[in-house]
Design a protein around this nucleic acid. Structure first.
Length: 319
DNA sequence: CCTATTTGACCCTG
DNA sequence: CAGGGTCAAATAGG
C-alpha cells in the first residue's frame, strides 16, 4: 500500500525541520507512552523524564521552525495562487457571483476554476471526519483504485467570510474506520458567525468550536463520548457532515465512533501556528483513550499543540 | 422558502 | 486522454 504521505523534496528547510521534529516528538511520545504503560520496563531506553524533555524539545523546535516558515511564506490567504480556493476565475466569486462567473461559451459556466496548485495542504488520519468546523459538501467523486469515494467539502463560511478552507475526506481502504482528511488552505473565517440555518441563536457551536477559527477565548469542550470526542461539534454542524458522509460510507462501515473530533487541522493551520494554542491538555485528552489518561495527568508540559495526532497512527503532513 | 446535498458536467493537470 | 477537483442545476429536507 502506499505510504500515507510522501515527503516533498521541495519543502523548505524550516518545514522539513518542523516535520522532522514533529515526527521525532511523536516517536518520543509513543515511547513514553509504552514506557508509562509498563512502568517496570526501562528497557534500556530513555527514561520518562528524558523522553519528556525530548518531546518538549521537539515541539519547541517544530514551533520555531514553523514560525520561521510561516514568516518566510507569503501569507497564503493573501496570495491569489496559494490559498487559492478552487473557485478559480474570480475566486471569491464562484457560486456567489452567480452568472457573473459564467463564461460565455461555457455551458452553465461550470468548470470555471483553477485548480489550486500550491495551496497548502495538510493530511490527517482520523477516525472521524468531523473536525468541528462547519463544512459544506460540494462534491463527491469515485477515485480510481479506491474503494471509497472522496468527498469534497468547503468551509461553510466561504461566502459570508470568504473562508477558503476546503477539505477532502476519504475512507482509508485498509482501515475503513479511519478517514484520510486532507485540508487545503486554511480557515480565514473568524469566530463563528452563523452558518445559515446551521447554527442556532444560542450558538452552542461556538463553545465547541475548535481553536482555529476563533482565536478567541472559546475553548473546546472535552466531551468524551468516545476516546476521540472532543469538541462535540454540535448537532447541526455535525449533522451536516454526518449525513454527507454516511451516505457515501454506507457500503461499509457506517457510523464509526462519534463524529466529534478535535480539529487537528486547526491545530496545524498555519495561521494558528501563532499558538495561542488553546487548552492543549484538552486537546490531548481528546485524543487519548482511557488507558492513557495517566499520561495526561502527569503531563508536565501542558503545551502540546500538535499532539492531537499522537494517539492515531496518522500522519500529518504539510505539503 | 431557504439551505444543504446530490450528481452529472466541465475544466485542469499530468 | 484519464483522473481528479469544482461547479451548479436539480432535488431533498427543515
Amino acid at each position: 500500500m502506499e505510504p500515507f504521505w510522501v515527503e516533498r523534496p521541495s519543502a523548505n528547510c524550516s518545514k522539513s525541520r518542523a516535520i522532522r521534529e514533529l515526527v521525532d516528538g511523536r516517536d518520543s511520545a509513543i515511547r513514553l507512552e509504552t514506557l508509562l504503560r509498563k512502568p517496570s520496563g526501562n528497557n534500556g531506553s530513555l527514561s520518562a523524564d528524558e523522553l519528556v524533555v525530548k518531546i518538549l524539545r521537539s515541539f519547541t523546535e517544530s514551533i520555531s521552525a514553523l514560525s520561521s516558515w510561516e514568516n518566510s511564506e507569503v501569507c497564503e490567504d493573501m496570495s491569489p495562487q496559494i490559498g487559492g480556493f478552487g473557485a478559480g476565475c474570480d475566486d471569491q466569486g464562484s457560486e456567489h457571483s452567480g452568472e457573473s462567473r459564467k463564461r460565455p461559451g461555457l455551458k452553465d459556466g461550470r468548470g470555471c476554476y483553477k485548480r489550486r496548485k500550491e495551496s497548502e495542504t495538510r493530511t490527517t488520519f482520523s477516525p472521524t471526519k468531523d473536525d468541528g468546523h462547519a463544512w459544506r459538501k460540494y462534491g463527491q467523486k469515485d477515485i480510481l483504485n479506491s474503494k471509497f469515494p472522496r468527498c469534497y467539502f468547503r468551509c461553510t463560511h466561504k461566502h459570508d467570510q470568504g473562508c477558503r478552507a476546503t477539505k477532502q475526506v476519504q475512507k482509508i481502504e485498509d482501515d475503513p474506520k479511519m478517514y484520510q482528511i486532507t485540508y487545503i488552505g486554511s480557515h480565514t473565517c473568524r469566530k463563528i458567525t452563523r452558518a445559515p440555518q446551521m447554527i442556532t441563536d444560542s450558538d452552542p457551536w461556538e463553545s465547541s468550536y475548535p481553536p482555529s477559527c476563533n482565536n478567541s477565548d472559546t475553548k473546546p469542550l472535552i466531551n468524551s463520548q468516545q476516546s476521540f470526542a472532543f469538541c462535540s461539534a454540535n448537532d447541526s454542524i455535525k449533522k451536516e457532515e454526518e449525513l454527507a458522509l454516511v451516505k457515501e460510507d454506507t457500503p461499509t462501515t457506517s457510523s464509526d465512533l462519534t463524529d466529534n473530533l478535535s480539529s487537528f487541522d486547526s491545530i496545524l493551520l498555519p495561521e494558528l501556528m501563532g499558538f495561542e494554542s488553546s487548552d492543549p491538555a484538552a486537546m490531548y485528552l481528546s485524543c487519548v483513550d482511557d488507558s492513557q489518561h495517566s499520561f495526561l495527568d502527569m503531563d508536565p508540559m501542558g503545551r502540546f499543540g500538535f499532539d492531537g495526532e499522537f494517539p492515531f497512527y496518522e500522519n500529518v503532513q504539510f505539503s
